[in-house]
Every structure is written in structure tokens, then in C-alpha cells.
């Protein structure tokens, strides 16, 4: 099955962006959309930064089919997200600063103005075996019901969106907030202004 050019173009754009920005390695990460009641997802081993039309696979939303044979290893997570949330697109990326902070914190607080206004906080979850779909497919959708993204400790981020571009903004935005927090932590100096202290989002 070869997907429409318009669909391929958006996968190609988002894939290149993720790799060029250092948010995935040459072969890591996966992206998908929901279309026509099915999932279109990057195939296994396809390179996000160098996608070909045949690297996109259409597969069932609800059950295993022949598309499952060649789809991304994390197809099960994508399926679970689509079935349990309002996601129309999903991105999984191995964002380094989010992953680094996830190894030392339980929740990434957005201390910068942009991150605080748009995202408030970045939830982190622990999963017994982070890579592969089984455990993440159980835990990730629970959080994505109420948040646009979640970081799996030591592994990477899953973000949902109405479109791939929408999900991409969540991935890059979360990573930027994490990056800023990481840099300020390095200085070991007190913050002159901490936006996260200005409103209470503990119950959000």
C-alpha cells in the first residue's frame, strides 16, 4: 500500500525535523497518524530522517493484520493511544534532555514562561521494560487521556496531537522546557524568577 503524497510529505517533514534537531537517532523513534479508521505508521527500521513512501504502513486500529508484520515495534503503544485517547497523531522520540531529567526527577516542572504557559508540567512514568510495546501500551495511554505528552523514564517521550505537526510542537516544546531546566540546574544558582511557582498546578 502506498499512501497519498500529501500524507507522505507531512511524515517526511516531521521525520527530518526530529532527526535534524537531535530528538531521535538515525533509526530510533516512530510516528503515526489516524486516517480513515486505520493507522498509518512508520515501518520498522525505517529512518525518520530519510523516509521513502514505502516506509509508511497502513494497519488496523484494533487488531493484528499483515501491516503489523512490518510496522514499528511500538505499534502496540500507538494503537493503545488511539483507542484510549482523542489522539489523531502520535510521535515517539528519544528526546535527550527530557530523558536525562526523567532519571533524576519525578515530574519535569516547566520553569520558563513559554513552557509554563503552554504545557504547565511534563509528567514522567516508570515502566518495567520501557522499550517495546507491551508495558508502555498499558501505562502511556492512561496519562495521555489528560496530558498531551508523557516521558517514559530513561526512554523517551510520547506525544499526541490533532495532527503530526501538532504532536511535533508538543515534543519540541517539552524538550525545550527540559533543556532550559537542565541548564539552570547546572548553574546551581537560585532562579531570579520561577514561573512554576506563580501558579499552583499540583491538581492539574
Amino acid at each position: 500500500m502506498v499512501v497519498d503524497k500529501s500524507i507522505f510529505d507531512i511524515f517526511d517533514m516531521v521525520g527530518k525535523h526530529l532527526v535534524r534537531q537531535g530528538l531521535n537517532t538515525s533509526h530510533s523513534g516512530n510516528i503515526s497518524i489516524r486516517s480513515g479508521g486505520k493507522i498509518i505508521i512508520k515501518r520498522r527500521t525505517g529512518m525518520l530522517g530519510n523516509l521513502k513512501p514505502e516506509d509508511l504502513v497502513e494497519t488496523s486500529l484494533e487488531e493484528e493484520d499483515s501491516g503489523s508484520l512490518i510496522a514499528s515495534t511500538e505499534l502496540g503503544v500507538h494503537r493503545a493511544i488511539y483507542l484510549q485517547t482523542d489522539a489523531m497523531a502520535v510521535i515517539h522520540a528519544h528526546v535527550p534532555y527530557c530523558v536525562a531529567l526523567s532519571l533524576i526527577e519525578d515530574e519535569i516542572t516547566c520553569i520558563d514562561a513559554e513552557g509554563f504557559a503552554l504545557y504547565k508540567k511534563i509528567p514522567i512514568i516508570d515502566v518495567e521494560i520501557p522499550a517495546g510495546a507491551y508495558y508502555t501500551s498499558i501505562e502511556v495511554p492512561k496519562v495521555l487521556k489528560n496530558y498531551p505528552f508523557v516521558v517514559v523514564r530513561g526512554h523517551g517521550i510520547f506525544a499526541k496531537g490533532m495532527t503530526l505537526e501538532d504532536a511535533l510542537q508538543y515534543v519540541t516544546g517539552a524538550e525545550q522546557s527540559a533543556h532550559i531546566r537542565y541548564l539552570t540546574l547546572l548553574t546551581e544558582k537560585p532562579l531570579k524568577r520561577d514561573f512554576s511557582k506563580e501558579k499552583d498546578f499540583s491538581s492539574w
Binding site: 489516524r34 479508521g37 490533532m162 501538532d166
Partner: peptide
């Protein structure tokens, strides 16, 4: 809202990919 006003994100107003899913949602 998406096709014209890019709220929350712009989607191509002439392509049909994903539109039935998004509309139902």
C-alpha cells in the same frame, strides 16, 4: 477551525487524509 484558522494547528484545507476521523472526533 483547523483548515482555515489554524486553531490549534493548520491542516491542508484541500486534502482529505485524516479528515473523516478528525471530523467525527
Amino acid at each position: 477551525s483547523l483548515e482555515i484558522f489554524a486553531a490549534p494547528k493548520k491542516i491542508d484545507r484541500f486534502t482529505i487524509a485524516g479528515k473523516p476521523d478528525l471530523l467525527a472526533l
